[in-house]
Nucleic acid binder design. Structure first.
Lengths: 229, 229
DNA sequence: ACCTGAACACCGTTCAAGT
DNA sequence: ACCTGAACACCGTTCAAGT
């Protein structure tokens, strides 16, 4: 064995908020929401549980730091992608931001749950600012900008929460198609008397595209906003 | 002291899923999300922690039962209110359902967090069915019904999550006006360079109406849906 | 069938003690 | 200033034992 074992963390580097957040993200990605404990985290960082408290006040702050780290990447990455993309209309900018969040949640399922519960922390505020600027650019009357941006943000966060919830239902690593066909089967077996609508759309659920449906919702709100002008 | 002390729970009644759910709701209302523990619950029910597990599989199921109990009341109450209300258009029915959920969350802040994380449990499905029927009644083309109902549901659940998060930030019992002015102050102090939009709307936040803004979002989506016909 | 309550494994957090 | 790790209080859950 000439290949040296690679540890994700080196013992020599000093602890820092950034390294802690990074390790937390790794742990959340690999082991899910339940996998992030101060003990597991300190083991990965080769230190004691108490050491982490020197840099982070408590678990909420730890989760916020992890959320912030991932979403910062997502928001900067998708505005970059926008440059080489379709026409730079405000509508497309809103779609790009929304999809950036959606894809980040897809890659880190725990992120959805966090975004849906943290509210008004720095992460959500940055997202709100992002959306608000585009709403302004859309030419929405001043007195309707707040409501419009709010609607978009809340819709995005709602989808975030539901995606996270769906991810938690299934064992980690289940493919998206499997999740959909499992859920579709549940819907198809509902009492037709009590659930006529859901049974009707059960077939559509099986082979629909989450991402496309998410975007359809964004477009619906954008159409509503357009009607304000 | 001739007045007899009234206990919320009588020792004599047998345990049941319903009584457990009821007591859980009471505990959540009084002590918040952190107040619901099997020990506290069994103390209130004058029994042992193990007894609860005979009727409820685990804590997730306990929370689901509590959520279900509250939302069932909300959904039946608001459809009743609809009868004596404004014209019975499908739009108004959607508004009534949405406001029913909003007000239920207002009365039980923990409900928002639950709705935002449970997904596809019976509670959310019933809400989805409710909305879907009205979308159908709106005359939305068949192939757009699923997306439209999804958008409405996700928006409602997004607001649910954010309201719950806001409630958790402030100490329990803080008035809505206090929450808003505290948050407004945070917004007004943001760096004007990084957060021009949010600083702009900070003033609107202070004396805005959560409920009205929620309804504005619903109307935005309804306007988007109307544009599909 | 239903309830009791001690016990288990685990968690967030603290803090005296070290360097 | 920063880290260590034992200790505390508490939690979800189990299960042998009771009725």
């Amino acid at each position: 064995m000439t290949t040296r074992t690679r540890h994700t963390e080196r013992r020599e580097e000093a602890l820092s908020r950034e390294r802690i957040a990074e390790a937390a993200v790794e742990l959340l990605d690999v082991a899910g929401e339940g996998g992030l404990t101060f003990r597991a985290l300190s083991a990965q960082l080769r230190t004691g549980p108490g050491a982490i408290y020197w840099h982070v006040a408590n678990k909420d702050e730890l989760l916020a730091a992890a959320t912030d780290a991932v979403l910062t990447d997502a928001l900067t990455a998708d505005t970059a992608a926008l440059a080489g993309d379709a026409p730079g209309t405000p509508e497309n900018a809103v779609r790009a931001v929304a999809l950036g969040v959606f894809d980040a949640i897809d890659a880190h399922p725990w992120l959805g749950a966090q975004l849906a519960r943290v509210a008004s922390m720095s992460t959500t505020l940055r997202l709100f600012e992002c959306i608000g600027r585009q709403v302004q650019a859309l030419g929405v009357p001043e007195n309707a900008q707040f409501d419009s941006a709010s609607a978009l943000l809340n819709y995005i966060l709602g989808v975030a929460g539901q995606n996270a919830a769906n991810a938690r239902t299934q064992p980690p690593g289940t493919s998206r198609a499997d999740v959909l066909s499992a859920e579709s089967a549940v819907w198809a077996n509902l009492d037709p008397e009590d659930y006529p609508f859901i049974r009707n759309v059960a077939a559509q659920l099986r082979d629909h595209d989450d991402r496309a449906q998410f975007l359809a919702g964004v477009d619906l709100i954008l159409a509503g906003i357009a009607s304000l002008r």
